[in-house]
Design a binder for these strands. Structure first.
Length: 698
DNA sequence: ATTAGGG
DNA sequence: CCCTAAT
């Protein structure tokens, strides 16, 4: 009996998991394409598309895009081209080099959604030039048109960059700390002051640390980027300043806030609470002419005064969020769990904050002759939202089936803090940054869509219905990357749609991170052609490895998140105070106790690896299991594996209806039970009869 | 450092 | 996931 058992658990018949990544990519592409071809695409689809793209592209490590690129699929061809173009974009473009260097270029995102009424070329010149971008979302603008000085801007504008600043390296004791700040603080501060002194007419300064800057000189921004945080509508985009020079981000006297950032001189991540995050909100009505001018020239469209309250809230939230995010990433970098931080938890008020902001999106209209849309619209600075626009343009709706094309060049990532030993290699640094980025991206992003400053929450609306396809509104379309409230598991509809596998179609409970899983799952289950089974151990290792550092949660979640429940979730702007309060708490807390590790739900592939390892090694040898199957998954400790096994066993025993989260294939669960039973028996036997090993078979 | 088990 | 106790 024993012998037989052993054979059963031997190393032979295991199915090797398909190469997850490859399968996933392909799948996503297919989905993406499919989706985009659908003319009935609804808002949700759009979201999904964008998110999917992001994730998809995210697979290519930004750092070495060249090597990591996968060969283009039909869908991506265009993208690829763009990428090439962008590879060295900044050098040629007027953006200062720092900009370039400080940003990781993510593959350009090009989403196409069918747009019936996409025809006009005068997007820009018309009414909606001024868009409100609450959370500093991505605004769509037409980049095709380049006007004079605005040209570079336009170019830049057309790209949504996922920008991570290369932090300045401060050597502190033996640790090199990377912070988002570039340059010395002092310098930056000074510069800020200067600017504000000269240009702050309508600006209010909350305290010495916070100031609004209305400078119309981009140069200033360029040169003294360091400690300044410039955000539109929110402080969360510490890096916006980079774009400022390029005019790629909308600056508007009303909604631009320049905040000096407190550097975290002493401690790494925590910044000063009260001072730092206070973005001052400028009186909506007051607009600095210079600003506008600048903006206008750069084709930045901003909404003048739209719900300020809302924006304000957003700002606060975003601040908090970004901070939180950065924390998170940092945290993820160090896997070691420390003690829990109650304070932190309490303080973290916002779940629904928008942490990551995106830059702009360019809408590319094919129809438009010269892409006249965006560029052409030097936007009237102050254009109030034209109410008319809403109604207008509807006429053309059905007339056309032209696809709505959206081009997102890059997204920015919230600040990332990285801490590494001086002895770390450059390679490790790159990798670390990559991980951080992945953590942010994979950690739960969802995409929000703003139209004329308003969030479109109904994911089921079609583009037409929501007005996204309307020409005149194109320039007022914005996308935002919002962190998924990973912490706040809101399961709206846990059991809603059982068998959904389509990544984009199935909204899943927020609580569940696992978009990827579904994909991988599919892949593995369907069996990948092309992937010859390796030794079980190896293949798994590889698999996991590849997966391991990538963020906690695979892509896809973002999509899900956006669904209907978003409505419920959305409105949770933390109050300003909350947001501010958080930081301090966190900091203090942080010193002693660590944050709780971010939750990283096991993917199906991981489960598979775990099951396989346990089948071979048995329970009780978690260290070996770890070594065998999760060696490369740094974030999975043997304790984690043990815990996972525990939960797996539990999961396998309960009814499928009671299971939550990423569904684990029944097959795996069966194996879990079998293995568990087997090893439990073994254990029992050993205890009972440690000695007489020989004649036990009968 | 691991393992086991409760929370 | 965290925390602890026991190895």
């Amino acid at each position: 009996m024993v012998l037989q058992k052993r054979l059963d658990y031997g190393f032979n018949g295991y199915q090797v998991p398909p190469t997850p990544r490859a399968a996933r990519s392909v799948r996503r592409r297919c989905l993406f394409k499919k989706k985009t071809d659908d003319h009935q695409m609804c808002a949700f689809d759009l979201l999904a598309t964008v998110a999917g793209k992001i994730l998809l592209d995210g697979e290519n490590p930004p750092l070495n895009t060249s090597s990591a690129k996968e060969q283009p699929t039909a869908v991506e061809d265009s993208i690829r081209e763009e990428e090439k173009e962008d590879d060295k974009p900044f050098e040629e473009k007027s953006c200062d080099r720092d900009c370039y260097e400080r940003n990781f270029m993510f593959a350009e995102l090009v989403s196409e959604a069918p747009d019936p009424s996409l025809c006009s070329n005068e997007l820009a010149g018309t009414q909606n030039d001024v868009i409100s971008r609450p959370a500093s979302g991505i605004t769509t603008s037409d980049c095709s048109e380049k006007v004079g000085s605005a040209e570079q801007l336009v170019n830049d504008d057309c790209k949504l960059r996922l920008g991570i600043f290369t932090p300045s390296v401060d050597v502190e004791s033996s640790v090199v700390r990377l912070s988002a700040n570039c340059g010395s603080e002092d310098e930056s501060r000074k510069s800020v002051k200067m600017d504000s002194a000269n240009n702050t007419r309508n600006l209010s300064i909350s305290n010495n640390k916070t100031s609004m800057c209305s400078s119309g000189h981009p140069e200033a921004w360029d040169t003294k980027p360091s400690a300044l945080v410039c955000s539109v509508d929110s402080v969360k985009f510490p890096f916006l300043k980079d774009h400022a020079p390029c005019g790629s981000f909308p600056i508007n006297g009303d909604n631009v806030k320049l905040v000096t950032r407190d550097d975290d001189e002493n401690s790494s991540e925590c910044t000063e609470p009260s001072t730092r995050n206070k973005a001052i909100k400028t009186p909506p009505q007051v607009g600095d002419h210079r600003f506008r001018k600048l903006i206008a020239s750069k084709h930045c469209n901003t909404t003048p005064n739209t719900k300020d309250d809302e924006r304000y809230a957003d700002t606060e939230r975003s601040n908090h969020l970004s901070r939180k995010n950065s924390f998170k990433s940092q945290r993820s970098l160090r896997d070691y769990p420390i003690k829990k931080r109650k304070i932190y938890d309490c303080s973290s008020v916002s779940n629904s904050d928008e942490g990551v902001s995106s830059d702009r999106i360019c809408k590319v209209s094919e129809n438009s002759t010269n892409g006249g849309g965006l560029g052409s619209a030097p936007t009237p600075p102050r254009g109030t939202l034209a109410p008319t626009s809403a109604s207008r343009g509807h006429e053309s709706f059905h007339s056309r089936n032209a696809p709505v094309k959206l081009k997102i060049k890059s997204f920015r990532v919230p600040e990332l803090f990285i801490e590494m030993p001086e002895t770390a290699t450059v390679g490790s640094l790159k990798r670390t940054v990559m991980e951080a980025v992945n953590a942010v991206l994979g950690g739960g992003l969802r995409v929000g869509i703003l139209l004329q400053g308003k969030k479109i929450r109904d994911d089921n609306k079609t583009l037409l219905q929501s007005g996204i396809s309307q020409n005149n509104k194109m320039d007022s379309l914005g996308f935002t990357l919002e962190p998924c409230p990973s912490t706040a598991p809101i399961r709206l509809y846990p059991e809603d749609r059982p068998g959904q596998q389509l990544l984009y179609d199935s909204p899943q409970p927020l609580a569940r991170y696992p978009p990827t899983p579904s994909i991988t799952q599919n892949g593995s289950q369907q069996g990948n052609p092309g992937t010859p089974p390796d030794l079980p151990g190896t293949s798994f290792n590889n698999f996991i490895e590849s997966d391991h550092d990538s963020a906690p949660s695979p892509p896809g979640m973002s999509l899900q998140r956006t669904t209907s429940e978003s409505k419920a979730l959305v409105p949770v702007p933390s109050t300003k105070q909350d947001a501010l309060a958080v930081i301090p708490l966190r900091k203090s807390k942080r010193s002693e106790s660590a944050q709780r590790r971010i939750r990283r739900p096991f993917t199906v592939a991981e489960v598979e690896a775990l099951v396989q390892a346990v089948e071979k090694l048995g329970t009780g040898r978690w260290r070996d299991v770890k070594l065998r199957a999760f060696e490369s998954a740094k974030h999975r400790t043997y304790v984690d594996l043990k815990d996972k096994w525990k939960t797996l066993v539990h999961t396998a025993r309960i009814s499928p209806q009671q299971r939550r989260g990423e569904p684990v294939p029944q097959e795996l669960l069966d194996r879990v039970l079998t293995a568990h039973a087997y090893w439990s028996q073994q254990q029992a036997k050993q205890q009972l009869k440690p000695q007489p090993e020989t004649c036990r078979l009968l």
